[in-house]
């Protein structure tokens, strides 16, 4: 099967610091990939580049075989402009660590905004879908509330509904439970688990919830200091970690529990 997302020798530097030192990574349609690794290893940067929030310093990212960050202009490859980025990132969705809900809109309006503006869908249809979507994440009775009136877990579930409204082919999760109180983590993970079971959407999860990652992922990618150190099926990674660093990393997790 052709990959839906391909990273080809992707580098990223912030000033003098190189955070990604040549990433090669293929994501197949409907594949669930968990990115794990110590903080500062560059996990978040990988998905932020795919969401076009961060431009790679070198290398190529392809979505559906199309070059995301470069486009052809008069026979030459130049940095993609906003139109080019927009034409591709419609297939990508993202859920953020800090929710980033729009505080001046109700949660229903949060979910309706993009489909109405970007896809020009009719308001009444979008509304029906949004209500359905919010019911699915267990917030059907809260659609008229504003983000400030919700708990962290509820906010994150709204953020997921909002991203799903755009029917992305690839969904990115950026440490979506890290900003939550421990007792609210479960309800958010539950929604993600349901999404994973539905199946057709590819998912890339940056997460510190090791058990969860191992449970739902098809593949676990371990990042360390800007390179992919090891990857494989969850069971392999957990049972037979090859590299010393991965052993260390997993060891820290089991010991801290």
């Amino acid at each position: 099967m052709e990959p839906i997302v391909q990273y080809k020798d992707v580098h990223k530097s912030f000033g003098q610091t190189e955070v990604l030192k040549g990433i090669d990574l293929d994501i197949k349609p409907s594949e669930k990939v968990a990115l794990i690794g110590p903080s500062g290893s560059g996990k978040t940067t990988i998905i932020r580049m795919l969401m076009t929030l961060e431009e790679p310093t070198a290398g190529i990212i392809e979505v559906n075989g199309e070059n995301l960050w470069q486009m052809e202009k008069k026979g030459e490859w130049v940095t993609a402009d906003e139109n080019h980025l927009r034409s591709i990132r419609g297939d990508i969705g993202m859920v953020f660590q800090h929710f980033n809900l729009f505080p001046h809109m109700t949660i229903l309006e949060n979910c309706m905004l993009a489909p109405v503006l970007v896809k020009n869908e009719s308001k009444s249809e979008v509304k029906a879908t949004a209500v359905e979507m919010l019911e699915k994440v267990g917030l059907g009775d809260k659609i008229e509330l504003y983000p400030a009136q919700l708990s962290g877990g509820q906010k994150q579930r709204v953020a997921m509904a909002r991203a799903l409204m755009m029917r992305p082919k690839v969904m990115l999760f950026d440490e979506v439970t890290s900003a939550l109180d421990p007792e609210l983590v479960g309800e958010v993970l539950e929604v993600i688990r349901d999404l994973a079971k539905e199946g057709e959407m590819a998912m890339i999860l940056v997460t510190h919830e090791m058990d969860f990652a191992l449970d739902i992922a098809d593949r676990v990618v371990f990042l360390n200091e800007g390179v992919i150190e090891e990857q494989g099926a969850p069971s392999e990674i957990l049972m037979n970690p090859e590299s010393e660093r991965l052993q260390d990393f997993l060891g820290r997790f089991t010991s801290s529990r």
């Binding site: 969401m51 929030l53 990132r89 969705g93 993202m94 953020f96 980033n100 809900l101 503006l117 970007v118």
Partner: peptide, 21 residues
């Protein structure tokens, strides 16, 4: 900044980001 990032992720145009968010 997160507000701009969220509207990029939802594929809003530059004008829509400014106008609606």
């Amino acid at each position: 900044v997160g507000q701009t990032e969220a509207s990029v992720a939802l594929n809003l145009s530059k004008f829509q980001r400014m106008r609606h968010v």
